[in-house]
């Protein structure tokens, strides 16, 4: 049975291509949300098994979205993988991931096999909990 993945990123072209790639593997059903302020509502309706989340977005950054998810009783435990094009190490240490304690962060451009591996591991780990 395919797993549900929510993509939250303001880059519409990027999310569309990532969705195509994930769906081509046949393992995932993907929903896109390009407006981070709507991410929580979309997730409540879609009930994803994992979330791929951009860091720098207008209106609300990835760290804030992550905090919203973690504060939600149902979505609080789903794995979140952060994707970022941030290039400056200072920003990484100050960024949302470091603050929220999330352990998975992947750089953009995304290495697809790596992402698929990380995603699959994260979903397996979440099932074991």
């Amino acid at each position: 049975m395919s797993k549900k993945v929510l993509l939250v990123d303001d880059e519409a072209g990027f999310t569309e291509l990532l969705k195509m790639n994930l769906e081509k593997s046949g393992d995932y059903e993907v929903q896109i949300e390009n407006d981070p302020t709507q991410a929580l509502g979309t997730a409540r309706r879609f009930q994803p098994d994992a979330v791929l989340l951009d860091v720098v977005m207008p209106g609300m950054d990835g760290g804030d979205v992550q905090a919203q998810f973690q504060g939600d009783p149902i979505l609080g435990n789903i794995p979140i993988i952060m994707l970022t094009a941030l290039v400056d190490s200072a920003e990484l240490s100050e960024g949302a991931v470091a603050q929220s304690g999330s352990s998975i962060m992947l750089p953009k451009p995304v290495d697809l096999p790596l992402l698929l591996g990380v995603l699959s591991n994260a979903l397996e780990a979440a099932e074991e909990v």
């Binding site: 880059e11 291509l17 094009a85 953009k108 451009p109 995304v110």
Partner: peptide, 14 residues
């Protein structure tokens, strides 16, 4: 650099 990485990310996915 960040703005250039976004289109690069898209290219790689393509």
């Amino acid at each position: 650099a960040h703005e250039v990485k976004n289109p690069l990310a898209l290219l790689l996915l393509g």
